[in-house]
C-alpha cells in the first residue's frame, strides 16, 4: 500500500510541475497567439475588401462580416464559405460590395491535387472573380465568365459554385 502511495506521490509531483510550467508558458504565449490570429484574419479580409478598414461580425447572418470604411459607412460584406472540392474541402474568403459585385476572392486552405486543382488558390484563377456580378460567376462552359483551371474543372467548379450560391442566398435574404 505504501508502495502505491509513493508511486502516486511521485507521479503527482511530476504532473504538477509539468502543469505549472505549461500554465506559465501558455500565459506568456497566449496573447501573442491571439493577436496573430486576429491580425491574419483582418489582413485576409482587407485583401478581399480593400475599401474597408474595419470588420464587424454580422448580427443577422452567420459567417458574414460587414466591412466599414474610415467614415463609418458600410462598404460591403465578407463571407467565409466552404466548397467541396475534388479531394478536399476548400476554405474560401470572399467579399462583395453593396451592389453585390465581387471585390475579391481568397482561398484560405485546400488540399486539391498539387499542380492542378491546387491552382484554384492562385491569383490567375481568382482574379477573374473581381468586378463580376453573381450572374457572370459561372464557368465559361456553363455560360458564365470564369475560365476553369486547365485539367481542374472539378476544383474550379467547386469554388465558382460556392461563391455564386453564397451570393445568391445572401441576395435573397437581404433584398
Amino acid at each position: 500500500m505504501k508502495d502505491i502511495a509513493k508511486l502516486g506521490m511521485y507521479l503527482l509531483i511530476v504532473c504538477s510541475v509539468s502543469g505549472i510550467s505549461l500554465a506559465v508558458t501558455n500565459h506568456f504565449t497566449a496573447p501573442r497567439i491571439a493577436s496573430e490570429m486576429e491580425r491574419r484574419k483582418n489582413e485576409a479580409m482587407s485583401d478581399v475588401l480593400p475599401a474597408a478598414s474595419k470588420f464587424v461580425k454580422s448580427k443577422t447572418h452567420e459567417k458574414v462580416f460587414e466591412g466599414f470604411n474610415y467614415a463609418g459607412a458600410r462598404v460591403g460584406y465578407v463571407f467565409e464559405t466552404l466548397a467541396s472540392g475534388y479531394s478536399s474541402d476548400i476554405e474560401i474568403l470572399f467579399a462583395i460590395d453593396n451592389e453585390y459585385i465581387v471585390t475579391g476572392v481568397k482561398v484560405l486552405s485546400q488540399s486539391e491535387t498539387p499542380g492542378l486543382g491546387s491552382k484554384v488558390s492562385g491569383d490567375e484563377f481568382l482574379k477573374q472573380f473581381k468586378g463580376k456580378s453573381r450572374e457572370k460567376i459561372m464557368l465559361k462552359k456553363a455560360g458564365g465568365d470564369i475560365d476553369a483551371v486547365t485539367s481542374a474543372t472539378i476544383s474550379s467548379k467547386a469554388v465558382t459554385e460556392a461563391v455564386r450560391s453564397r451570393i445568391y442566398e445572401f441576395q435573397k435574404d437581404t433584398k
Binding site: 509539468s18 502543469g19 505549461l22 500554465a23 508558458t25 501558455n26 497566449a30
Partner: peptide, 8 residues
C-alpha cells in the same frame, strides 16, 4: 480554459 493541456 486549459485547452493548451490537450496534448498531455
Amino acid at each position: 480554459k486549459i485547452e493548451y493541456l490537450q496534448t498531455i
